[in-house]
Design a binder for these strands. Structure first.
Lengths: 96, 96
DNA sequence: TTGACAGGCAAGTATCGGCTTGCGTATAAC
DNA sequence: GTTATACGCAAGCCGATACTTGCCTGTCAA
């Protein structure tokens, strides 16, 4: 099941993490922590963010790449396609 | 916020309800209960389904119409558009 | 009016999920 | 080697939430 996908999207902090990673891909955990507090006003701890990233990775929305002691996080929005494919969204031809 | 939307999609039973309503729109609560147990193997009680429908309605995914003692439920998938608009899904031009 | 039917409300329970806390590991700098 | 850095693991706490239980309201048929 794609339960992992919807579970991952169910949390506001995780959605903000996706926002951040879309804007700047390939961040490390510490980079993310900094930017989330600075730009998005989040107060989550490092461990909290780390656990959120694990959930996002389980859902296939984030892939990771190890490099020495750094771990880079990359977004992958392709799993989202399953949502609109499951419940077809009719085109909104309202505007011209 | 669209927190209601993601919260609504976060539950497996609610997703199955959406499946059912997409396949056959405008069902009453009792109709839904029957079909969910028959076709989808769910064992949820009437009250449980009713509460799920309330959550779906809050998210704008289901609209209701009263008619005497009947209440018909209609799907509206348009809120889902906000998801792919928030995190653009690149076209998969793999197939031809 | 009486009864069956369709649905609603609200409190209690129990499970789940996000977060903290504390310690551990590996890589790199000095 | 020593220290700092970047991250991992796991147990526990606590609030959220799905579900049950019991009773109530409104509609329609006889």
């Amino acid at each position: 099941m794609d339960a992992d996908l919807f579970k991952a999207l169910g949390d506001a902090t995780r959605r903000t993490i996706l926002d951040e990673l879309v804007e700047r891909d390939g961040q490390t955990l510490f980079e993310l922590c900094g930017r989330l507090t600075m730009k998005h006003g989040l107060t989550s701890s490092r461990q909290a963010i780390s656990q959120h990233l694990a959930v996002l990775e389980e859902a296939g929305l984030v892939h990771t790449r190890r490099e020495g002691r750094y771990k880079f996080h990359h977004v992958d929005t392709s799993p989202l396609r399953a949502i609109v494919e499951r419940w077809p969204v009719e085109r909104e031809d309202a505007d011209q």
